[in-house]
């Protein structure tokens, strides 16, 4: 990674700079070694290791009984995972593209999310649904969506979006040990991104935002790949004398409201970045949380920058217009700080 990362490369040896894909694979392998109840199921997860090769090598270590290739039946195998989770297993479901979550919505929203509540706390659903998100990979409208807001809207689900290999590994291990259904979104464009991951074991608790860069003039809240857009923008802004603080909530549910509000109170100016559609999305919710918690400290309205409210187009110059870029964040930040 080119940008400085707290918890990542600072003061650590470069020998453990690994890719996001490898960090995810390590988390899965460690948890599968630790707990025989953990297993993986999904399309092309075994020998193929998924089209992104994230799971490569796992079937060799854990065998086809624990790394299970399914038919192309998202509803069916997600439902099977719900039942397996309720009866003692800890499934990790692989939904190849986040867009395919639509096929499993009843299983996730009506079954997994509600079984614990509807049963008065009697059944638990300890499962993880790993899936992908993110545009700008020229995959068009049905392989590029970032649908995390849908799940953050449903009580009973937890939603995790890591932005670094370090966070991905620690958060995935926590997700697998969690007793609730957890949606774990991985950005397709970040699998090859490298970062420091320590050799010793660690987990990262949910509900704890990470300040990826400290600053006094402006807060940029960002998730997933947008954290890197924010950090790039912050670097350019620093050259202009604007110090931006970059905060990654890391988990949307549970949400670390305090850290967001505290930063907004300190800087008085906030931009929120997300790769999900702007309308009715994550940026709206976070803006509302910050406005309610820091209203009297704000010097300007909170600015939201989500993905454009259009289906993701195929044509590269069009697609690139739909998600926030560091250039646009810099321009927005300058305007917000009265430096346009």
């Amino acid at each position: 990674m080119s940008t400085p990362m707290k918890h990542s490369s600072e003061g650590k040896g470069a020998d453990r700079m690994i890719s996001m894909a490898q960090a995810i694979r390590e988390a899965l392998a460690e948890e599968m070694r630790r707990d025989p109840l953990v297993f993986i199921m999904g399309e092309d997860v075994a020998e193929a290791g998924t089209p992104f090769k994230v799971l490569k090598g796992l079937v060799e270590e854990f065998g086809p009984q624990r790394v299970i290739d399914t038919p192309i039946s998202e509803a069916g195998f997600t439902g099977i995972a719900v039942g397996a989770a309720m009866t003692g297993m800890r499934p990790v479901v692989d939904i190849m593209f986040g867009d395919f979550l639509t096929l499993a919505m009843d299983q996730i929203v009506n079954q997994a999310a509600k079984a614990h509540y509807m049963s008065g706390g009697k059944w638990k659903v300890p499962m993880v649904i790993r899936t992908t998100m993110g545009a700008t990979l020229r995959k068009a409208a049905q392989h590029s969506q970032s649908l995390h807001a849908w799940f953050a809207h449903i009580p009973g689900l937890k939603v995790v979006i890591p932005s670094t290999p370090y966070d991905a590994k620690g958060l995935l291990k926590t997700a697998i040990r969690d007793d609730n259904p957890v949606l774990f979104f991985e950005h397709k464009a970040m699998y090859s991104m490298r970062g420091y991951v320590p050799p010793e074991e660690y987990t990262i608790p949910f509900g704890v935002a990470d300040v990826k860069r400290e600053g006094r003039d402006l807060t940029i809240v960002a998730i997933g790949r947008m954290v890197h857009v924010a950090l790039e923008a912050a670097q350019q802004l620093a050259e202009l004398g604007i110090e931006a603080e970059v905060i990654d909530p890391r988990t949307l549910v549970p949400l670390d409201r305090e850290t967001l509000i505290e930063s907004a109170r300190k800087t008085g100016r906030v931009i929120i970045l997300d790769e999900g559609h702007q309308s009715y999305g994550v940026t709206a919710e976070l803006a509302s949380v910050i406005t309610e918690g820091a209203f009297y400290y704000l010097d300007a309205p909170v600015v939201r920058m989500g993905a454009m409210d259009v289906p993701v187009p195929f044509s590269p110059p069009l697609e690139d217009l739909t998600v926030p870029t560091s250039e646009r964040v810099v321009e927005t930040a300058k305007a917000l700080c009265g430096r346009a």
């Binding site: 309720m86 297993m89 009843d106 009506n110």
Partner: peptide, 21 residues
């Protein structure tokens, strides 16, 4: 494992319980 108000809503759960067993 639960009655279910979605028609066929529990068929996945049931099959998953069998898988788990």
């Amino acid at each position: 494992l639960g009655a279910n108000a979605i028609v066929a809503g529990a068929v996945g759960i049931a099959t998953g319980a069998a898988f788990s067993a």
